[in-house]
Structure formats: structure tokens, C-alpha cells
Amino acid sequence: MLANFSNVGLVTVLLFTAALFSIGLYGAMTRKAAVSVLMSLEIMILAISLNMIALAQFIPGAQMHGWHFALFLMVIGAAEVAIGLSLIVAIYRRVKTSNVEKLQVLRDEE
């Protein structure tokens, strides 16, 4: 194989995924469009799933469990995106904005 990351080392990968997670964290807390917040959450989930796979590959005997965790994390991520995006569409239909800072009403004003 041309490139195989089998001797990169666990610490390098963990530091990289921590950086990726921090970028997602920054985005989730600063972006104003609801879709952008969800995209930042998506980056965080990508980082976590990469973390799981790295731990599975590098720690002896953990491979099977790590793969399963990564697989279930993917399912949770897909479900979260489906619900999140449909909620954004529903909220947008109702209040005509997807700016999370304008969504401050907890109940309908009649």
C-alpha cells in the first residue's frame, strides 16, 4: 500500500482529532445560521468517530469494539442530522428565519 498510517502513533492522531473537535466547538458557538451550527456539530462528530477508529486500531485487542462504536456513532450522527435539518426547516417555515439569535421565543405570543 502506498501510504499506511499504521506507524503514525496514537498520540498524533489524538492531537489531530482534538484540534478538529475544537474547530467544530468554535463554529458551534459562534455561527448564527442554524445550518452552520449543525455543520459545526457534524465536524465534531467526524472528529469523535476518527478518534474511535484511531483508538481501535492502535490499542491491542480493542479493534472490534472500536469499530462497532464508530459504526453506531455514524448511525447517531445520521439520525441527529436528519432531525436537526428537518427541525430547521420546520422552524424556518414558522418564523421565516434561521438565525439562532433571533429564536428567543419560548412560546407562541397570541
Binding site: F5, V35, L38, Q57, G77, V81
Partner: peptide, 25 residues
């Protein structure tokens, strides 16, 4: 993920995140 040695998960990730989630977004 592929180069870390989890090829199957890499393909699933490509299909789910790059395919489904990206297009949905």
C-alpha cells in the same frame, strides 16, 4: 479512516457523511 486500516468504515463514512449528510445539508 481508510489509511488507518478500517476500510469498511471508510466506505460507510463516505456514503453517509459525504453522500447523504452533505447533500441533505
Amino acid at each position: 479512516t481508510w489509511f488507518l486500516g478500517a476500510e469498511y468504515l471508510a466506505i460507510a463514512q463516505l456514503l453517509i457523511y459525504a453522500g447523504a449528510v452533505g447533500i441533505l445539508t
